[in-house]
Design a protein around this nucleic acid. Structure first.
Length: 257
DNA sequence: ATGGCGAAGGGTCTTCGA
């Protein structure tokens, strides 16, 4: 099974690229972040024509997440048990017994911002949600745009970036707390000390100069670790005409037999 | 050289992203 994650920075703009990528890579599941679409405008028909079901959870202008899948999504859920806070940043479903939780973690803006404390609160709530999901589905993938570079190997210039937002100790501790539930950063696990990025700033020729961060992650529960065949960041998509600033990331799992 | 791009909504600019 192939499960992918991609922050598309507006599905309205990026739909042609998404359809092309689905055709080219044929993932079983593609989790999207920053769709920036209200549900009424989600391109259900175009994706169905490409052979994909869609579970989507949007809002006007900001955020928005979706899960596209070959299989019908089982036990779908969007947002929190209490109904959330109006920010469409989470959806989940089960495919062939594997729970896929798709998140768009708040950016945080700066350490002084209210958005930063919201980010830390959001991550703490996510920890509770993942604990309960794991209890029900030991085979779990937590994927998405985490807006956290796990450590300095995931930053093009860690000295310049320092402990600023995306790299601050409290954010990294929140990520560690998630991992401590029984998850691993699958790309890092597979690739040792390799340095690749999943996001490059639109400004300052970030992609051309390969100045980026690895903030789009696929966390796999320990029950899935023996099944991992490969984990890939597809930087080709970032070089497209009118690209998202994020590249797709995907994991390939050995099929049950 | 600390700003540079891109998207959205609304409207010729502001806010946000990371």
């Amino acid at each position: 099974m192939k499960v992918a994650s991609w922050n598309v920075n507006s599905l309205k703009v990026r739909l042609p690229q998404v359809l092309e990528w689905l055709q080219e890579q044929s993932p079983d599941v593609l989790c999207l972040q920053e769709t920036k679409l209200v549900d009424e405008k989600f391109p259900v028909a175009e994706l169905a024509a490409a052979g994909y079901h869609a579970l989507y959870h949007g809002q006007p202008t900001y955020n928005g997440v979706a899960i596209l899948s070959r299989m019908d999504p089982e036990n779908p859920r969007c947002d929190w048990p209490d109904g959330g806070d109006g920010q469409a940043r989470l959806c989940a479903a089960t495919f062939a017994g594997i729970r896929v939780v798709n998140v768009y973690v708040p950016n945080g803006q700066s350490l002084e911002s209210d958005k930063y404390s919201y980010k830390l609160q959001w991550l703490e709530r996510l920890q509770g949600l993942i604990a309960s999901e794991l209890a029900q589905w030991p085979q779990l993938l937590l994927v998405g745009d985490f807006n956290i570079a796990p450590d300095d190997r995931d930053v093009f210039d860690p000295v310049a970036w320092g402990e600023d937002v995306l790299c601050s100790p409290p954010e990294r501790a929140a990520l560690t707390a998630l991992l401590d539930l029984g998850l691993q950063d699958s790309w890092r696990q597979r690739h040792g000390n390799l340095q690749e990025w999943s996001w490059w700033d639109y400004r300052a020729a970030g992609f051309r100069r390969n100045r980026g961060l690895r903030i789009d992650l696929i966390l796999a529960s320990v029950a899935l670790l023996p099944k991992i065949q490969d984990v890939v960041i597809d930087r080709n998509a970032r070089g497209a005409e009118r690209p998202s600033d994020h590249a797709p990331v995907f994991i390939e799992l050995q099929e049950e037999r």
